[in-house]
Design a protein around this nucleic acid. Structure first.
Length: 381
RNA sequence: GCACAGGUGGUAGAGCGGUCAAUUACAACAGACUGUAAAUCUGUCGCCUCCGGGCUACGAAGGUUCGAAUCCUUCCCUGUGCA
C-alpha cells in the first residue's frame, strides 16, 4: 500500500508538493520516473540508478511477461530483489503496447503527433498485428510471433507476480489519429477493464486507474470522473497528447480538475524538459519518460544550455572539447569527463559512451525536477 | 627476371559486354525520437543542374564493338611464389 500527502499547494497554479510513501521508500513529488522497461534503466546498474537521484522507476508488464516471464520474477522474490532495485517501482500494465505495437506501429505514429496524419482510426478498425476485443488484447509477440492474450485479469495477475509497489490498470492507449467515435468506444472498454482490475486484485500493491479520452474534452472529463469514482490508490493520465504544447496542457488540466486532490496523479509517458513545468503546474505529481535514456543511446545529452549531439565532429576538438557536457551539472560524468571524450566514445560506438550519457541525462532530469520542487516551495511556480 | 593473382567511388568489397554514376557494408553529413520491438530509424553521400537532364569516371594509353568497369594489346603499380 501507499500513502500520499500533499504538503503544499501552489497559489499560482495547480502545482503541488507531496510525499508518496511506498513499501520501498518515500518519493518527494513532483517526481520524474525513469523508465526501466525490462527491469533495468538501460545501461545503468542499480547503484548508478541511485546515484542519478532517481526516486522511483517504472517497469513494464508486457515486456517482462515476454522476457523472462513473471514466474521467474516471482521465484526471485519479485522485481526489487530480482534486479536489486531498492527503490519504489511501478509497472505499466501493457496498455501502452496496445498502441505502440498496434496502430502506433501501423502508422509509424507517436502519441504526441504534432500534426494530423492521413490515417484515421474509425470505430471498428483493428491494428494489423493485434486484435482488441471486449475482454482484452491478442498481441503478436515480437519475440517469436506467437499470440499472447492480455486483458485486465491477465495484466493484474502478472503485475502481482512482478511485485512492484504501484501497478496500473490495463487500458487501451488510444492514438492521436483515432476518431471521437473510436475513442469513445475504447474508453468504455478501458473503464470496464478498470473495474475488472479492481475486482481481481488480491495483493496489497497500490493500483492506479488510467484516464483516457484522447483529445476530446467531454471524453477526458467523463473518463476522469469515472476513474475518480472508483477506489483507486492513484491515477494515471494516459493516451494521446497530440497537437501542440498548449493543447497538451489543456488536456491534462481537464483531467486533474476532476481528480481528487488527496490521491497521486501520474502522467504516463510525457516528460521533455520543456514540458516539465507545464505538466507540474497542471497538477501532475509524477511522470515518466523514456527520453533521457533513449536520447542518450542516440548520442544526445541534455544540458542547461540545450541539447548536445555527441555524434557531431565539432565536439572532438577545440576549446569546447575540453569542457564538460554541462559546467553547471555536478554529476559524475560532468565532473570527470570532457565533451571530447564523450563524443569520441559515442562516435566509436563504445558502450561506455551510452552509459555515461544515460547517467548524465537521468541525473539531469532528476535534478531539473528537484529545482521545480524548490520553486514550488518558494512559491515561484 | 620469370610465373601466377590483382588494381573499382573516403575505406572494404560486388559487378565480368548494354538495365552502371556503378549492389552492399563501413565512414561522413543531415534529420527524427515523449507509459522503449529503439546502442534505433530516415534521408544525403562523383561534379553541375532551370531537377527534364548534362558532364567526368572503374590504374594509364591504345584497340575491338552500335555499345566497355567488363574483351584484346602495351605500359605502370601491388601481392605471392620461383630464380
Amino acid at each position: 500500500m501507499i500513502d500520499f500527502k500533499v504538503t503544499k499547494r501552489s497559489k499560482r497554479s495547480s502545482a503541488r508538493l507531496g510525499v508518496l510513501e511506498t513499501p520501498h521508500g518515500i518519493v518527494e513529488t513532483p517526481c520524474f520516473v525513469p523508465v526501466a522497461t525490462q527491469a533495468t534503466v538501460k545501461t545503468l546498474d542499480s547503484e548508478e540508478i541511485m546515484e542519478t537521484g532517481s526516486q522511483m522507476l517504472i517497469s513494464n508488464t508486457f515486456h517482462l511477461h515476454l522476457k523472462p516471464g513473471e514466474k521467474i520474477l516471482k521465484n526471485h522474490g519479485g522485481i526489487h530483489k530480482f534486479a536489486n532495485l531498492n527503490l519504489p517501482i511501478m509497472t505499466d500494465s501493457g496498455g501502452f503496447q496496445v498502441f505502440s505495437l498496434g496502430f502506433g506501429r501501423d502508422h509509424g505514429a507517436s502519441k504526441v503527433e504534432k500534426s494530423a496524419r492521413e490515417e484515421v482510426i474509425m470505430k471498428g478498425d483493428q491494428p494489423k498485428l493485434l486484435k482488441i476485443t471486449e475482454d482484452g488484447v491478442e498481441f503478436t509477440s515480437y519475440v517469436d510471433g506467437s499470440k499472447i492474450f492480455m486483458g485486465p485479469k491477465e495484466s493484474i495477475k502478472i503485475q502481482e507476480s512482478i511485485g512492484a509497489d504501484i501497478i496500473f490498470a490495463f487500458d487501451e492507449c488510444t492514438s492521436p489519429t483515432a476518431t471521437k467515435e473510436y475513442t469513445a468506444e475504447s474508453l468504455l472498454k478501458t473503464n470496464r477493464w478498470a473495474d475488472i482490475c479492481l475486482k481481481v486484485r488480491k495483493s496489497d500493491q497500490a493500483l492506479y486507474g488510467i484516464v483516457q479520452g484522447g483529445k476530446y474534452r467531454d471524453l477526458r472529463v467523463e473518463s476522469a470522473r469515472f476513474t475518480a469514482s472508483r477506489p483507486f490508490d492513484g491515477f494515471g493520465i494516459g493516451g494521446e497528447f497530440g497537437g501542440d504544447k498548449a493543447q497538451m496542457v489543456k488536456m491534462i488540466e481537464w483531467v486533474t480538475a476532476e481528480l481528487p486532490e488527496n490521491r497521486p496523479r501520474h502522467l504516463l509517458g510525457i516528460g521533455y524538459l520543456e514540458d516539465m513545468e507545464m505538466i507540474v503546474k497542471a497538477g501532475v505529481d509524477t511522470f515518466d519518460c523514456t527520453v533521457p535514456t533513449h536520447y542518450a543511446r542516440h548520442g544526445n545529452a541534455f544540458t542547461s544550455k540545450g541539447k548536445i549531439d555527441c555524434t557531431k565532429t565539432k565536439y572532438l576538438s577545440g576549446a569546447v572539447s575540453k569542457q564538460p557536457l554541462d559546467p553547471e551539472c555536478d554529476c559524475f560524468v560532468c565532473q570527470n569527463h570532457t565533451k571530447g571524450y564523450l563524443a569520441h566514445l559515442i562516435r566509436a560506438h563504445e558502450i561506455t559512451g551510452l552509459k555515461l550519457l544515460s547517467f548524465h541525462n537521468v541525473y539531469f532530469f532528476n535534478n531539473y525536477v528537484a529545482e521545480i520542487r524548490k520553486k514550488i516551495k518558494k512559491g515561484l511556480l
